[in-house]
Amino acid sequence: MTTTPRPDTNQNLKTFEKRVWLAVILIIGIVLMTRFFTVKEMGRYYAVDTGSGLEAATAVDKEAGVAFVDVDRSIGIWISALMTIGIFSFLYKDNPYYKVCEALFIGISAAYWMVLSFWTTIIPNLFGKLFPTWTQSWAIPGLPTAHEHDWWLYFVPLILGIMLLMRLFPKYGWMARWPLAFIIGTTAGLRLIGFLEADFWGQIINTINSFPSYASMIEAVNEGNYSELFKLSNAIIVVVSILACLVYFFFSIEHKGAVAKVARLGIFVLMVTFGAGFGFTVMGRIALLAIRLEFLIYDWLALDIVGG
C-alpha cells in the first residue's frame, strides 16, 4: 500500500533540493573564480593586433609581449560557457536558467534571419535591381548602376513581397494568398522536376548501370578474378531489394500470399536500412556533444590534462 507524501514533506524536499543546488553552485563558483585568478589562460581571449585586425594570439605573441586580453571576447567566452551550461541544465530539469537561454536564442536568431535576409536579398537582389543608383550610393558601392534589361519586372516580387507582409494585419491577411500561391506553385514546379530527374529516373538508371557488362564478367572469370561476379550478385540483390520494398509500399493491393512474403522481405531490407541510418545518426549526435564539451574544457576552463 502506498502512502501519498504529505504536502509539507514535498515542500521540505524542494527546499532541501534548492539549498543543495545553491551550495553546489556556490562551490563551483568559488572553484571557477580561484581558477580564473590563478590560471592566466582560463576564460580569457588573448588577441594580437596585427595592424590589419585582431587575431588570436599564439604562445609566441604572449612571450613577445604583443598579446593582450581582449575584454569583449573574454566576456564572450564566459557568456558562451554560461549559455552552454544553461542549455545542458535542461537535462536535469526544466528551469528558469534554461528558459532565459531559450528566450535569448529565439530573439537573437529571429533577428539574425531578418538582418541576413535584408542585407543579402532585399538590398542587392530587389532594390539593387529596381533602384541601382540609390542602392549603390549608400549600401553596395560595387553594384553596377545601369539598369538591366527588363529591370521593371522586379516590381512584381516587390509588390508580392508587400502583399506577403500584409499577413501581419488580420484585415488584409487575405492579400498574402497571392505571394503564397506563387511560392507554392514555384516550389511544386521545382520539386517535381528535381525529384523526377534525380530521385526517380536517376535511381532507375543508377540501378541498371550497377550491373557489370557481360564482356567484363567473362574477361574477369577467365583471369580467375571473381570480383565482377560479386558485383553482379550485389546488383541482383539491390534490384530484388528495391522491388521488395516497393511492393511493401504498395498499399492499394492487399498484402496476402506471395505479395505478403515479398512485402516482408521489403520490410527486412528497410529495417537494415534504418539500422544503418541509426548507427550514422548516433555518430553525428555524439560529435555535436563532443564539440561543446571541447569548448568548455579547452576554451573556457583551459584544462589540459595530458594523455593519449
Binding site: I122, N125, L126, P157, L160, G161, L164, F182
Partner: peptide, 8 residues
C-alpha cells in the same frame, strides 16, 4: 522572384 520572396 521565388528567391526574393523566400528572403522576405
Amino acid at each position: 522572384w521565388f528567391d526574393i520572396l523566400a528572403g522576405i
